[in-house]
Amino acid sequence: MTTTTTTDPAYVDPALINPRAVRLVNAFKDFLARMRDEEGLTYQDFSVAADLLQRAQQNTGAPLAMIFGPLYSEVFVDDRDGYTPAAGVDAFTVIHDTPHIGNPGTLPMRPDEPGTPLFASGRVLDGHGRPIQGAKLEIFHAADNGNYSGLYDDGVPKYNLRGHLFTDAEGRYAFTTVTPSSYADPHVTAVDGVAEACAALGRSLYRPAHIHYEVHHPDLITPWAGEIYFKGDPVIPVDFVGGTKAPPSLQADTVLHEDPKDIAAAGLQGPYRTTEFDFVLKTRTSPDTIALKETAA
Rank of each mutant, 00 (worst) to 15 (best):
K231D: 14
A246R: 00
V194C: 06
D97F: 06
F68I: 03
D185S: 07
M1P: 06
H128Q: 04
Q44A: 14
G88M: 09
T3G: 11
Y272A: 02
P99N: 11
I290R: 04
M109V: 02
V25I: 11
G267C: 05
V178I: 12
I132T: 01
F230P: 13
D97E: 11
A209M: 02
H100I: 03
H216T: 06
D278Q: 05
E196R: 08
F166K: 02
A91Q: 10
F92Q: 13
D278H: 08
R36D: 10
T189E: 09
T7E: 14
T60N: 01
K29R: 15
A209W: 02
L107T: 11
I263G: 07
D8F: 04
K293Q: 04
I290G: 04
D253R: 12
G122L: 00
E214T: 00
D154M: 07
I290K: 04
R34H: 10
T285S: 06
H164L: 06
H216I: 03
G134Q: 05
R162Q: 14
A65C: 07
G88A: 07
V22C: 06
E170L: 00
Y72P: 09
A143T: 01
L205C: 08
Q251R: 04
D13V: 11
A87Y: 09
A297N: 11
P271R: 14
I139A: 04
G270F: 10
F119S: 02
L16C: 11
F277L: 10
A174T: 00
L32S: 10
H216Q: 10
D233Q: 05
R123K: 12
D90G: 01
D51P: 02
A142K: 10
F230R: 07
